[in-house]
């Protein structure tokens, strides 16, 4: 029995690792290409570079004339950090109301929230741009981060609603009996129990804001305001001279902070405080 179990485990690990290799092949190819001299990127097809060079990393990091990737990283991280705070606070507040409180027009408003997600962004861009321009918010991060404080990303509201709805109602009812009002229930009962949802919101806000190319393109114009995502696109232009090696090198590096962040936060999902919290 024990032996069979062991074989089963080895088999499982082998399968998982094989899956990892297949999944990561394109990324490995990118890593290997970023280490090859330019002329070998598309001629030398092997994953193991024949010649290794760090040129692309050095040249790539140097960025565009005066600003380097240090600036772009700082900009991206600032943007993302503020966005996370905004989303976590505003979305969980709204979600609590939708999931647990009773009020008129609740269904209608919930529907409205879903509806705001169903309209393709591209037709909203111009009116939004005009609005932010009138507010004199051009070339600042305000058009990107301020809406986050107003729960405009329905995805996270909906996500958190679903999490709260799966929590046993007895919990807040018991708390009510103990004399807790809605605010105390929200902070003392609900918030600790939806840590996985909050962490998920954090992770996704990080990734999506980091990668959100379109709004960064429209609102951040000055060179000193460029983010990593914007800078990466500048490496590649079909009409001019592109720098594929640097593009691969910097793209690879750009995954690193997101990956580290994910490694760090995913534990909180996994260790899920919820498991022990409910009695």
């Amino acid at each position: 029995m024990a032996l069979a179990n062991r074989y089963q485990k080895i088999l499982l690990h082998t399968l998982i690792i094989a899956g990892v290799v297949i999944m990561l092949y394109p990324i490995l190819w990118m890593l290997s290409s970023s280490l090859k001299p330019s002329e070998l990127i598309f001629t030398d097809n092997s994953l193991w570079p024949k010649k290794v060079t760090m040129d692309h990393y050095i040249k790539g990091w140097a960025g565009i004339s005066k600003t380097t990737f240090t600036t772009y990283y700082l900009n991206s991280i600032t943007l993302v950090a503020i966005a996370i705070i905004g989303n976590v606070v505003s979305c969980s507040l709204a979600a609590y109301a939708f999931a647990r409180l009773e009020f008129k027009a609740k269904k209608l408003m919930f529907g409205l929230m879903l509806m705001t997600m169903m309209i393709p962004l591209h037709v909203l861009v111009i009116p939004q741009y005009i609005m932010f321009n009138k507010l004199d918010w051009m070339n600042t991060i305000l058009p990107i981060v301020v809406p986050k404080f107003f729960a405009t990303e329905g995805f996270f509201v909906f996500l958190t609603v679903q999490f709260i709805r799966s929590l046993p109602r007895e919990l807040d009812q018991a708390a009510t009996v103990d004399g807790c009002g809605p605010f105390r229930i929200y902070t003392k009962v609900i918030l600790p129990l939806i840590v996985p949802a909050i962490v998920t919101t954090t992770i996704f806000t990080f990734i999506w804001t980091w990668n959100d190319f379109f709004s960064q393109l429209l609102y951040l114009t000055g060179q000193e305001k460029l983010t990593v995502t914007l800078a990466l696109r500048i490496f590649l232009d079909a009409m001019g001279e592109s720098a594929l090696g640097s593009l691969f090198a910097m793209s690879f590096l750009s995954i690193v902070p997101v990956f580290l962040m994910f490694m760090f936060f995913q534990r909180f999902i996994v260790e899920g405080i919820a498991t022990s919290g409910i009695k």
Binding site: S65, K66, I234, F235, D237, M239, G240, E241, A243, S246
Partner: peptide, 11 residues
Amino acid sequence: WGGQARHDMMN
């Protein structure tokens, strides 16, 4: 608009 080389030159 352009590629990196042009951006460097323009700058």
